Amino acid sequence: MTIPSSADALTLYGETFASRVLLGTSRYPSLQSLSDSIDAAGPGMITVALRRQMNDGTAAAGFFELLKRHRVPLLPNTAGCLTVNEAVTTAHMAREVFETDWIKLELIGDDYTLQPDPVGLIEAAARLVRDGFKVLPYCTEDLVIGRRLLDAGCEVLMPWGAPIGTGKGVINPYGLRVLRERLPDVPLIVDAGLGLPSHAAQVMEWGFDGVLINTAVSQATHPDAMARAFALGVEAGRAAYLAGPMTERDAAVASTPVVGMPFWHQDGGS
């Protein structure tokens, strides 16, 4: 994969990252599969859910040692939290365990869709920003909620493409594109719901700054191969965005000019 130039590197909270791919670490068939996927994706950050790991009897020290060996910046998250206090407490625990101020803030408001609780999310974000965290809030594509999170001190938003783990791709293209257009200077990373590399390429073509993927990779038949495919999709989508795509048209326009065509075609002869 091509390493992005410093002029086009992903920058969050003033820090530059080597890739626009963020990779989750849950539900892989084995630690080796996870390790191979990290190598294949070359992510800028890898996420880890502190609560789930601590509550899972299989979360042996080997998991954390694997993450350290890869030397990829860690982004702890508050997955599984249902209240503001839970999320804030988990974030503080993660800061102690992983020795980082970075946190992906998740605060779930609905068990069926796993949609974020917008009111609690804003409150939790404001508290964590005051506590010195670099907060990346998992939110929907709602523009007003996004603005309130920015007002709370967040410098990055992580809107979903679709509900977590569904693999549907972007279910509200209009809303997501409006968010991008109305917040042109805010780093936006599409998180949740992407299932295919083409989904990642699509949002990157729209001008999004990165994607976070987990289930699409960990539940693939060959996770490491899928991780590589997503990395290539993100790279292709970013390159297309920077290249300036043509304007979509409703009517067909001939790609071959009339100039230079045989005279009998121009005259209508056979």
Rank of each mutant, 00 (worst) to 15 (best):
residue 208 F to P: 02
residue 251 A to N: 06
residue 78 T to N: 11
residue 58 T to C: 08
residue 64 F to C: 06
residue 243 A to V: 03
residue 33 S to W: 11
residue 72 V to P: 06
residue 92 H to V: 13
residue 94 A to T: 07
residue 226 M to P: 00
residue 63 F to P: 01
residue 263 F to Q: 15
residue 270 S to H: 11
residue 255 S to F: 15
residue 30 S to V: 01
residue 41 A to Y: 01
residue 17 F to M: 04
residue 94 A to E: 00
residue 73 P to A: 14
residue 214 N to T: 06
residue 71 R to E: 13
residue 26 S to G: 07
residue 124 A to M: 09
residue 94 A to W: 01
residue 142 D to F: 11
residue 212 L to F: 05
residue 208 F to K: 08
residue 63 F to T: 02
residue 4 P to I: 04
residue 218 S to N: 12
residue 161 G to R: 09
residue 162 A to T: 02
residue 90 T to V: 11
residue 86 E to I: 11
residue 241 Y to I: 04
residue 190 V to D: 02
residue 223 P to H: 13
residue 217 V to T: 13
residue 253 V to F: 15
residue 9 A to C: 14
residue 150 L to Y: 06
residue 76 P to G: 12
residue 99 E to P: 00
residue 1 M to N: 08
residue 50 L to H: 10
residue 220 A to F: 02
residue 179 L to T: 04
residue 142 D to I: 11
residue 66 L to R: 05
residue 258 V to Y: 13
residue 240 A to F: 14
residue 45 M to P: 02
residue 119 V to N: 09
residue 14 G to H: 11
residue 104 K to T: 00
residue 41 A to F: 03
residue 79 A to Q: 08
residue 133 F to S: 00
residue 146 G to A: 02
residue 2 T to N: 05
residue 79 A to C: 12
residue 25 T to M: 09
residue 112 Y to W: 09
residue 215 T to F: 00
residue 136 L to S: 10
residue 161 G to M: 09
residue 129 V to L: 05
residue 217 V to R: 14
residue 105 L to C: 14
residue 75 L to W: 12
residue 37 S to Y: 08
residue 104 K to V: 02
residue 256 T to W: 14
residue 132 G to W: 08
residue 196 L to I: 03
